Simulated assay, not measured.
Amino acid sequence: MKDQSYSLSFLVNKSPQEVFAAVNRVRDWWSGDIAGGTDQPGDIFTYSVPGIHYSEQTITELIPGKKVVWHVSDANLTFVKHKSEWQGTDIIFDIAPKGDQTELRFTHRGLVPDFECHEACSNAWGLLVGGNLLRLITTGEPQPSPW
């Protein structure tokens, strides 16, 4: 069966190392309150938007210039019935050279259409990864909240 997890990808005129570095500057593209380390294997950080979203991520894989994986160990989404829908999911950034460009493939493994938050969370990831992170990679400048 085909994986139905949320995914998006884009190409940039930056090196894999530059893309990797930008992904790990989480506070510069993921709008909200972030506490904890975000750039070392085993780091645990929380993300929150008061009254809407809380999640705790552990960096489970960090391969310079190639891959970043966060495991969501705790979650509370106040806008859905099953508030812990994200718990146990993985947020994955695969980075690979494609000709003279670099491809970033983002996957939130486990964020599937059966989740009540799928539409809202997919839209948010589109704005944050396809907007904020993409602009951070291309400009090097921290990005303001898209909302």
Rank of each mutant, 00 (worst) to 15 (best):
M1S: 12
Q4A: 10
Y6D: 06
S9M: 08
L11Y: 09
V12E: 06
K14A: 15
K14S: 15
S15P: 06
P16D: 13
P16Q: 09
P16G: 08
Q17C: 06
V19C: 01
F20W: 11
A21P: 01
A21V: 04
A22R: 11
R27P: 00
D28M: 00
W29A: 04
W30M: 13
G32F: 06
G32E: 04
G32M: 07
I34P: 06
G36F: 04
T38F: 08
P41Y: 09
P41M: 14
P41G: 08
P41Q: 14
D43C: 07
I44H: 07
F45T: 00
T46V: 11
Y47K: 05
S48W: 01
S48M: 09
S48C: 11
P50Q: 09
I52C: 01
H53P: 00
Y54D: 04
E56I: 03
E56K: 07
I59H: 03
I63E: 15
I63K: 15
P64M: 04
K66Q: 15
S73K: 12
N76P: 04
H82L: 10
K83Y: 04
E85A: 12
Q87D: 07
G88W: 06
G88F: 10
G88Y: 09
T89R: 07
I91Q: 05
A96E: 13
A96H: 06
P97W: 03
K98W: 02
D100Q: 14
Q101E: 08
Q101N: 10
T102M: 05
T102H: 02
E103I: 05
R105N: 09
F106T: 13
T107P: 12
H108M: 02
H108P: 01
L111M: 10
V112T: 15
V112F: 01
P113S: 07
F115P: 02
A120S: 10
S122Y: 10
S122L: 13
N123V: 06
A124V: 00
W125S: 11
L127F: 12
V129D: 10
G130T: 11
G130E: 14
G131E: 09
G131K: 13
L133Q: 03
R135V: 00
R135D: 11
I137H: 02
T138A: 10
E141M: 03
P142Q: 12
P144D: 15
